[in-house]
Design a protein around this nucleic acid. Structure first.
Lengths: 329, 329
DNA sequence: TTGAAAGCGCTAACAC
DNA sequence: GTGTTAGCGCTTTCAA
């Protein structure tokens, strides 16, 4: 493959009849320069279509302005909105975004992290939903975690999941449900979703009802998820309310329920969790607990900025949730 | 800010008692090396937790293994699935993904492109939906476009949009609709969506009906979109069928219609376009034209690979679409 | 089978 | 105001 010869600083210097230093100064607008020189250099740059080589600069400055994002997938209303928000906020702080979709595969997540680190990223925002917590996260690389406890010293941005779980469960209880079932990740998955379960269990216990949780992992294929929900209805035909830990599962559950002749909300009430914008457009009827997704993104970037600026003891942040009234629950 | 001193190749060399060259050779598995040496070097690397600096390597090799993605937003069922697919395919080809959400803002798109180019990316995949076609796209950087004609020499991966438009319109005609309205981008937006409109217009003309298109831009805020659709119903109360150029608009239209007391599909039939997985979960009732999104991603990466490998005359690819039977149309 | 030295493109002391 | 020079961490001729 032919290597295209790039216009470099030296070429600009030659054309403008100055030294590399001067061009560099013009480029970075540093130091004293005569207007005439600036002018000539700018002209030379234009003429040659000069574009500075970020790699070379990065090698020197040890700063890449790159932030890595590691999430299960971007193909999801919640993560999609979140990553779009992160990208936007990072952009405003003049960072570029390196995307890594781990597909909830621990091995892939590790590989991604390795690669991102090799790329000398300036920071990392993680929200992958698995247990892999490699010890190279123990570097002093600025890291922010979203909805997931990674390590003690890493700040977490999360919704008030316990409160969300309360809102959802209470809503179903208020609607008169007596047999409420919950869906969530397996207990060993270290995500803050577990707080939603905790709230559900506490409220059910207080109300004197049994708490039953069906476990569905993030990377469970869709058909398999449907099979699990079908089993739910087989094993618990008395179910009259379901608190799903995310809207996608809520949608799937409603599909399965309807296919079995259950009417929603007459025979079965369903409350979801997330309330992403995309979901609101396609499925506005869904009653759900809405997270402040855009705010999460903004806060996360802010916490990362703080760390990059050298601040230590960056505090975790919990954000409020609201119940969104639909017709399914 | 204190600069963390990184372990470098030289440190490994010192510890292993060999030269930098040797370590580099071990790293890249190149040249002849005695097993004993390899062993010692590997041990030293482990001991020091050595991680090669990709930036330094990139400066030399002029290859970053980075591919830029420029799309309007990742917060959308279609683009979300597409970018997730691209990221996955690129990952398999050992490329990392640099994300750029242009928000359909030409200025932001240009800035993104500049930044991506400065980062010395190895290739670019674009699907932004605006007219900005900067002439620095005329570099010999490998580029693939998705669903958008950028420049003659840049290969495009697109669905058979004309066929899709036919399928959708014909479906509505077959269902007995006589007043079918279409939504699409303004005519000057250079996207292949215009082929959907063309098909609609051709079929309407053949059937002897007038063709009416309401124009909605990608970046139109949601409330404004709703206002446009409300206007649609005001101006054309006789409408009995709508072919929306994407599922999100279809969803919005159905919301507006229902709010005005129209029953779908009894009073109004709606057919969308895209058929992304996420949409299928949340709104399975929607009749829509499904694009082969995952395949688009795979093909796009393949075309990019071809260009990176030095191949010229890379051909554009058109992919098939299918009508997905729902209950709304 | 291994090492010395030059250089990728840029920046920043330190001179003048 | 501007230039000289060294060096960021790595790879690769070329020589031994």
């Amino acid at each position: 493959m032919e290597k295209r010869r790039q216009v470099k600083l030296e070429d600009v210097a030659a054309l403008a009849g100055v030294s590399k230093t001067t061009v560099s100064r013009v480029l970075n607008n540093r130091g004293y320069l005569s207007e005439a020189t600036k002018q000539r250099v700018h002209e030379a740059m234009e003429q040659l279509h000069y574009r500075p080589n970020a790699i070379a600069r990065q090698l020197f400055t040890q700063k890449t302005n790159l932030v890595g994002l590691v999430f299960p997938t971007v193909n999801d209303p919640f993560f999609g909105q979140l990553e779009a928000g992160l990208d936007e906020c990072l952009y405003e702080n003049s960072y570029r975004t390196l995307m890594g979709n781990s597909q909830n595969n621990p091995q892939k997540e590790e590989q991604y992290l390795q690669l991102l680190l090799n790329h000398q990223i300036d920071g990392l925002i993680v929200g992958a939903h698995n247990q892999a917590m490699p010890d190279y996260l123990q570097t002093n690389l600025p890291i922010v975690s979203i909805e997931r406890a990674v390590a003690p010293q890493i700040p977490v941005v999360a919704s008030d999941n316990y409160r969300g779980g309360q809102l959802a469960t209470q809503r179903l209880l208020d609607a008169g449900c007596q047999h409420i079932i919950h869906t969530n990740y397996p207990k060993d998955v270290m995500t803050t979703n577990q707080d939603r379960r905790k709230a559900y269990e506490d409220l059910m216990s207080q109300a004197g009802y049994p708490a039953i949780t069906y476990e569905v992992n993030y990377d469970t294929p869709m058909e398999e998820k449907k099979a699990i929900f079908a089993r739910l209805f087989d094993e618990h035909p008395e179910v009259d309310g379901i608190f799903a830990d995310n809207d996608t599962n809520a949608g799937l559950i409603i599909q399965v329920a309807k296919a079995r002749g259950r009417r929603v909300p007459e025979d079965l009430k369903v409350v979801g969790f997330d309330g992403a914008d995309g979901t609101r457009i396609l499925f506005p009827e869904l009653t759900t607990v809405q997270q402040s997704i855009d705010q999460m993104a903004a806060v996360a970037v802010n916490l990362l900025e703080q760390q990059i600026a050298g601040q230590t003891n960056v505090e975790s942040v919990t954000l409020p949730v609201t119940l969104l009234e639909g017709t399914t629950g």
